[in-house]
Design a protein around this nucleic acid. Sequence first.
DNA 1: AGTGAAACACACACCGT
DNA 2: ACGGTGTGTGTTTCACT
Lengths: 152, 152
Amino acid sequence: MSLNQVDRQILALLQKDASLSTAEIADKVGLSQSPCWRRIARLEQEGYITNKVAILDAKLLGFDMLVYAHVRLSSHGRDQLAQFEKLIMSYDEVTECYSMAGTMDFMLRIISKGIEGYELFVRDKLLCLEYVQEVHSNVTMTCVKRSTALPL
Amino acid sequence: MSLNQVDRQILALLQKDASLSTAEIADKVGLSQSPCWRRIARLEQEGYITNKVAILDAKLLGFDMLVYAHVRLSSHGRDQLAQFEKLIMSYDEVTECYSMAGTMDFMLRIISKGIEGYELFVRDKLLCLEYVQEVHSNVTMTCVKRSTALPL
DNA sequence: AGTGAAACACACACCGT
DNA sequence: ACGGTGTGTGTTTCACT
């Protein structure tokens, strides 16, 4: 159920580099392979580790535009809330979406190729929805830091 | 140098699930193991795949607070810009940081345990810096979507 | 819970096409 | 460039402490 220090160490290692072998992790946390493997399997099974992914180089692949957009829905749009969220999930350009505290707003992280790509997205996939009242775009310039790791 | 359709397919698969074996990927893209393995190795070597990470369940680990903070630096703070960025990179609570177009602002993605954890962070690690002029917190409520995948 | 060994699958290299 | 085959290395299980 709960986690001890070794479990946290394992998680900390894996969230930085999932290509580490069980033997390497076992070595770093001071365990032998078998018990280390069992712990990792347990951490996966209990849901602490949700999945493993490859991180790609966005710039190298031509995605030079990263925008955080605030989307305000009209008040009667609450009815279509579920539909809006479902739609958002189907948009690959939207890599993240959160509803914000205190407002009827959503914040979207949108990745695209150039301003043209971003404008196309906003026009064809956001503004075309009747219940979208306002879209405010926060364009990022340089990425100082980007990590998927939690502060364990 | 450039990528064909098969390469993109491989990248698309790996950015969703990096635990796929070469054989499984080869099967899905219609190649046999050897050429598929060579392509993946090339994609890593050329930097398209930067690394592989395990994604952990933030809520399960007690990180129930996710805030996007806009930080405004005072104009003479430009001198300490490099120092600020270095400091930000050392803070584990800051998982992302971007400088924003058009302003002297930075946007920080901060993950913490409860409002208490967040307040502690802002007080002890942001407001204590003389050149930090203003911190505006956008608190997220529910996560509609979160993905690390690019829209290939 | 940790250790050791054994079965198995996979990653990686070397061939031929 | 793709495909087949082999060998070492990592993963996964099992029997034991």
